[in-house]
Design a protein around this nucleic acid. Structure first.
Lengths: 327, 327
DNA sequence: ACTTGATATGTAACCGGTTACACATTATGA
DNA sequence: TCATAATGTGTAACCGGTTACATATCAAGT
């Protein structure tokens, strides 16, 4: 890799001039510029970002902290983030924390010492003190961090309500629910919304983590302890898939005998048989907005904290009956 | 963030001594060491990786180039890679190329200028010349790059054979196949293995990309043009899920009337109803091995090229009939 | 007692950029 | 015509580490 010094020598100018044409600032004569550009082309020169980073204290790196990229909700988010980061010339560093404080702490230090320009956080125990003392632009995504940190979330409460309303308007009368991990506020809101509308119709409820295995166990518990019910709202699509599988295994017909609504709108929902009706979050959009916001924080030095709340929509597939207009 | 100079001043030593205790090399007296350690603790000092990087020309970063993290095969791979990288003090930079040469090229330059220590490549047109001229340790994962680049792959040919043998030994006699993208050698081998064993029994075959939507279209084509068949081998689990969905939609019973075998062994396979029988690649293991190999290349300066071929296994779930020993 | 090697530490050069500053030269306006 | 501003360019300091090299002390060996 050529260095700026080599370019300077070849173009018969000083490194300062080369730097000026690279960064397009300061005065440079037309001839000098041309000479430098030719030298750059000939040497296939690209400036060393590490060196630049040392001086400017910006790295073009953004840290992405998530619990586990393996959870099917996150890849889409990561993709959106990486896409817009990349469009703006940033790269993203992937960190899986498994929600372990110790791992988070280690990553935070690593990211800090490598001078990332900002952080997107899709994980945290809401009591995690690590972030607040960090002096880095950051935005929480699908999570709420209590102090003055920007957040991009979707309207879980409304989503929960929508799920209940849909189930009810599709003829379900005995509702059940499997909630998600209780420490996740954004997920708890789905449950809150659902319960507020379900009211008297609720006949059973349990909780599960977002792993399929546990969701299956939770589903079994739900069936064992609360059957019969004719409408289930699951806190995410993975859990919904588990409910569906368990229902089918018990020869319960879906949607005839039991209607199921999931949450998230991940691709998995299309792949089950029958495909899942779900409350879809605008996942890609959430990632995009979060990253754009972060870049604003980084580049425009905005400071006012903002919470961006995105709407959810019902994606009707085949685990619910058609309501209203029948085709 | 404190600098080495501040630590040195506080400990009443020179920066060289601080550096020596940080890196644990050179001679340092017990008192000096202790003073430095105290200063480090008091100032909460962590060395600036950018500065270190500039001198040492190593960054502790490895670049991960994949087509699309959104494709459910890749998150597990990414997780494995990130895990072992992290255990060795490396971070990973995520790059989604969509298999576009231009994007790859851009990433390659970006990664190079930020001095990544190595590359893991899970994508490429086998004719891509970009990598060969790069002087970076790298290993191809689930892909084969023709020149002398290390590769970690699983035994697709054997997997294809195993799929056919399983179908046959479970009583299928009319076999069909949906292959993957034809430019992917590792995927083509699955088809080769399958065809070699299926032989006369093959009644239909088509191809599909790895998106669910296209797979669904391909499935429909298969049914429209080649039905009846009683055993299908799909080139990956996403395609298998599509075949399953289409079969069920046509009221074909699985596995009674039609047996289906997928490939990959991703979690999705557990979540369909019924869950998919599949040829499982040791995905996490592949990611792990690739990363370990890369770190060897980086740290031990190994040079001999190696191709690591990992075995696949049959994961029997419920889209095939039980063969042999009935429980 | 004197050479020699091990131990200990500081100074300064270096990595490859950016930019403040000094110093020209040329254009502009009074 | 001359003061002043705009333009153009190079030198060197700086970012925060690492390490070669110089220097000094001390213990061991002869």
């Amino acid at each position: 890799m050529a260095t700026i010094k080599q370019v300077a020598k070849r173009a018969n100018v000083s490194v300062a001039t080369v730097s000026r044409v690279m960064n397009n600032n300061g005065y440079v004569s037309a001839e000098a510029r041309e000479a430098v550009e030719r030298a750059i082309a000939e040497l296939d020169y690209a400036p060393n970002r590490v060196a630049r980073s040392l001086f400017t204290k910006t790295s073009g790196l953004i840290g992405l902290i998530m619990p586990d990229i393996t959870n099917p909700f996150f890849p889409q988010l990561a993709r959106a983030i990486e896409d817009v980061a990349n469009q703006h010339g940033y790269q993203v560093v992937l960190c899986n924390t498994d929600e372990q404080l110790a791992k988070e702490q280690t990553y935070l230090i690593a990211l800090q010492t490598m001078h990332v320009d900002g952080l997107i956080i899709t994980t945290n125990h809401s009591d995690n003190p690590n972030y607040e003392k960090l002096e880095l632009p950051m935005v929480a995504l699908d999570r709420i961090v209590k102090s003055g940190i920007d957040a991009v979330i979707s309207d879980g409460y409304e989503g929960g309500r929508l799920a209940a309303e849909t189930l009810l308007s599709c003829g379900a009368t005995r509702l059940a629910h499997i909630g998600g991990p209780e420490h996740l506020q954004t997920v708890k809101r789905r449950t809150d919304g659902f319960l507020d509308v379900a009211g008297e119709h609720l006949v059973g409820m349990t909780h599960s983590s977002f792993t399929f295995k546990e969701a299956l166990t939770a589903s079994q518990t739900l069936f064992d302890e609360h059957w019969p019910f004719d409408g289930v709202f699951a806190a995410n699509d993975v859990i919904a898939a588990a409910v569906l599988q368990e229902a089918l295994r018990r020869n319960v017909r879906v949607p005839e005998d039991l209607q199921i609504i999931g949450y998230d709108g991940i691709e998995l929902g299309e792949m089950t048989s029958p495909p899942l009706t779900t409350i879809a979050q605008p996942i890609y959009e959430m990632g995009r907005r979060a990253t754009e916001r972060l870049l604003d924080l980084i580049e425009k030095k905005e400071t006012a904290t903002k919470e961006i709340l995105l709407p959810v929509t019902l994606t009707e597939r085949q685990t619910t009956k058609r309501k209203g207009h029948d085709t």
